[in-house]
Design a protein around this nucleic acid. Structure first.
Lengths: 175, 175
DNA sequence: CAGTTGACTTAGCAATACACAAGTCAGCTA
DNA sequence: TAGCTGACTTGTGTATTGCTAAGTCAACTG
């Protein structure tokens, strides 16, 4: 058994289309660096303050500043002033809905790291708070079937070039 | 509602432990660059040959060579010689089980990119080959509940420092 | 009103990541 | 045996990522 997707229709001829409008690529532009993902991890762990981000994600302050700025620009985090009673106004970073929806990526990354890179077992684990069961990142279709790579088919969507695919020969696929 | 995990037990005091044994971080060391993920995307799309990886992932040949070498070293891809009849022996790269299990990461990334960065709709879509339903990357517990970030609890696992957590005060947590 | 603290920025530099162009080399094919 | 092709490597240059160390600045606190 091989670990490949099934390509159908227009996509079958892999050389006839290019994947440069690819959402994976776009997502990587926004959140594809080590430091960005580490900062986001901390946001999910509840970190909100600049210094804590830098210290806990173990990145330098200039990097933390740059990454936080980009993540705010791209709408994954929100920067808001707040004040605790008797304290002066400070800045706080919070995950937006957009940022929060990236969690499956981190969960999948963590699951994979746990499985293949953690000989001593996972350092931390995710559980469902209500029923205390372990949590997994998985692929499911809308009918509820749990899927492996070989069960998947890749089809052209509406966001490709013109006619509904990213097709267009080797010259024109740019989008 | 906020988009944060619930931290319990030893992990509650976020400053008392460090996440440097973190599986996310480890996973990022191995497959955390744009080019690595793009090369892997191509592997899932069925690409096996050097030149095709470089062309389709749109990375330069030196980068393709470096990334392929690393991915093979880390066991995500396998490099094997093969020959078509009447052709000379060539090299082929195939996903290993280890590499294949990274697919949920790419699927989650793609899903997020489709949702937030693809105003014209997804360029390509995943379907379940058998029932033709759209596919999602989602979080579920072993009891089958589908979960959002706020339903999740983070607990210490066996792979942390010594006592079963990555705890150890600000000085000793290094692992 | 001096000191502290949070939230940054600036300066200077090393290490990656990546690009393009060109070169290598082995084994077919003509 | 000359040429082609797949699979790389080498050379060179830029951009990004990252670090440490130090500086800034506003608003509290003592």
């Amino acid at each position: 058994m091989d670990h490949t997707l099934q390509l159908t229709g227009l996509l079958r001829a892999r050389d006839a289309w290019s994947a440069d409008a690819c959402s994976i690529r776009r997502a990587l532009e926004v959140a594809g660096t080590r430091s960005a993902l580490l900062i986001l991890r901390e946001a999910f762990y509840g970190t909100t303050r600049f210094d804590d981000f830098a210290a806990r994600a173990q990145v330098s302050e200039p990097v933390a500043a740059a990454r936080l700025r980009e993540l705010v620009e791209h709408g994954l985090l929100e920067r808001e002033p707040y004040r605790e009673p008797g304290q002066r106004t400070r800045m706080r970073y919070k995950l937006t809905d957009c940022g929060a929806e990236l969690f499956p990526v981190l969960a999948a990354l963590m699951q994979w790291g746990d499985r293949w890179l953690a000989p001593a077992g996972p350092p931390v684990e995710l559980r469902h708070h209500d029923c205390d069961q372990p949590v997994r990142a998985e692929l499911r279709c809308d009918s509820g079937h749990q899927l492996a790579v070989a069960d998947l088919e890749l089809i052209a969507g509406p966001g490709g070039t013109r006619a509904g695919a990213q097709a267009g020969g080797r010259s024109g696929g740019d989008n």
